[in-house]
Amino acid sequence: MIEFIIAVIFLLITPGPGVLTTAGIGAAFGYRAGFSFVGGLMLGGFINMMIVISGVAALVLAVPSLRTVLLVASVAYLLYLAWRIASAGAKVGFAPAQTPLGFKNGLMLQFINPKAYVVSTTLFSGFIFLPESPFVEVVLKLIVFNCIWLPVHLAWLAFGAKIGSLNLSQNRQRAINIGMALALLVVVGIALWTSF
């Protein structure tokens, strides 16, 4: 169980589409504005885990044409998010928008987030600690995962809000945006590299 907890922490604190978008929303719109998006991410993440645990993801990904369509959709959306962050100019966060991304956006992101599938597959197919009771193990893993997941995402939201509230120079704000966008592009590159 300790190894599982350590793996969850390290897999969640590394930048991926969910945490980078959460931080971007915090920076652009403030801490409270990100709650709806985080709620959508959490529900989407739970559904994502159920898809992986049930084996549906393995069945879907076994169809080459469907796998390609999902990969293209994922990459396109992640590139769009990277562009929105990079093009925000001298304001940390997203390119000018009237409202932050909300619950629906968080929910949908988890279905095309390649990191979410990798994390779910890694955590639920590995780190076996109750081989005699797989159902109880899955339930415990879900509880532990979410007890770590929520504070990590709220911390990224707070980090983004803090960065957004600082009186940083335009060059520093632009550099932060470009750094966040580049981190997202790394995730896209890893997704493409691991899919071939």
Rank of each mutant, 00 (worst) to 15 (best):
I5R: 04
I5C: 05
I6G: 10
L12F: 11
G16I: 07
T22D: 07
G26V: 14
A28N: 11
G30N: 02
S36A: 10
F46C: 03
F46I: 11
V52M: 01
V56T: 14
V56M: 10
L59W: 14
S65P: 15
T68Q: 08
T68E: 06
L70D: 03
L71Q: 07
A73N: 06
V75N: 01
Y80M: 06
Y80T: 07
W83F: 12
W83V: 12
I85P: 00
A90K: 12
A90D: 09
K91L: 09
K91W: 00
V92D: 10
A95L: 12
A97V: 04
Q98M: 13
T99L: 08
T99I: 12
F103C: 03
F103N: 06
L109S: 05
I112L: 09
K115A: 01
S120Q: 09
T122S: 13
L123F: 10
L123C: 10
G126T: 00
F127A: 06
I128L: 09
L130G: 01
S133D: 14
S133P: 08
F135S: 03
F135H: 11
V138P: 00
K141R: 11
L142W: 04
F145E: 01
P151Y: 15
V152D: 08
L154R: 05
A161K: 12
I163C: 12
G164K: 09
L166T: 09
L168C: 11
L168V: 08
Q170E: 14
Q170F: 07
R172Y: 13
A175C: 13
N177K: 03
N177P: 14
I178Y: 15
I178A: 07
G179V: 13
G179W: 08
G179I: 04
A181N: 00
V186E: 11
V187A: 09
I190H: 01
A191L: 00
A191P: 04
F196Y: 15
F196G: 07
